[in-house]
Amino acid sequence: MTAYFIRRFLLIIPTFLGITILVFTVTRMVPGGPIERMLTEAQLASGDQVSFQSNNQGIAGSTLSESQLNQLKEYYGFDKPILESYGIWLKNILLLDLGYSTRYGEPVWESIKQRLPISIYYGVMTMLLTYMVCIPLGILKAIKHKTHIDNISSILVFIGYAIPGYVMGIIVITIFAFYLEWFPLSGFTSNNFDELSFIGKVKDILWHSVLPLIAYMSGAFAVMTFLMKNSLMDNLAADYVRTAMAKGMEFKTAVVKHAFRNSIIPIATNFGENITLFLAGSFLIEKIFNIDGFGLLGYESLVERDYPVVMGILVIGSLLSLIGNILSDICVALVDPRVRFGA
């Protein structure tokens, strides 16, 4: 098994290179890079009437001199061939230097670091809650297959699934925050957060996160519940459960001791994917609830052509997903001896 994990870890390297080269190239090929962006803004600021149609035109009609432009290009590494500047970027990454935001001029790491706690909080909470609700619900639905409990919960779960997360966000915010005023409209904490006691702080964060969490969970919920249900149903019908029953084992014990462990294998496989998904967040939900997380940062940087931040998020994101995948491999290996022994 050790060999397996060493192989997994070594695989990170080519995967990481692949993803970053791809995105790096894309940022170079798509017209309208950070320099053009800045030029437009400079023009708009100086009240220049020249409309910004194409790059050449823009540069020609710009307020910057040729040498200033070249200086800028050099600063962002746009003067070199793609491969060379990718090399420089990669070297900096290895030195843990993510570069500077073209928008604010502050280090990329600073922007990311600010959002990290919020994103991790929502990511981990969403995942924990999803597992805590979906696994028991899936088990119940499998055992009570085709009864009222199963049918009614299926309808509810499907309604949740059919409504996109951000629409769900708008619905819950309208009902519970706007009309009923049970929960705050937006934000991560109250204004007087710093004055609160520790318990008060925890309560405050939880109070603020109820509605966003509902919006986050509504999509993943159905998938996980049905994954659990179907997986358990398959295993309940498995030969080895029948063997256990033939030994004289009670049905309940057979479910718990034999069917359950096998049925969480697909859930464990799913684990890594979910970590990434939840940590990456959703910029629409973040926008609705005014949460300053990864999703919003990524979206804004993309719109603003703030490529160092985009690349920085990508680096952190792919590292998280790789770690997530390895974690789920470990989980699978823990429950399934066939994986552990390389069968």
Binding site: D239, R242, A246, P337
Partner: peptide, 17 residues
């Protein structure tokens, strides 16, 4: 009354010793 099944490959639980 004990029983032995048709398929030895699947009759045992793969995750338990």
């Amino acid at each position: 009354i004990a029983m032995i099944f048709q398929e030895p490959m699947t009759a045992l639980n793969p995750v338990h010793r």
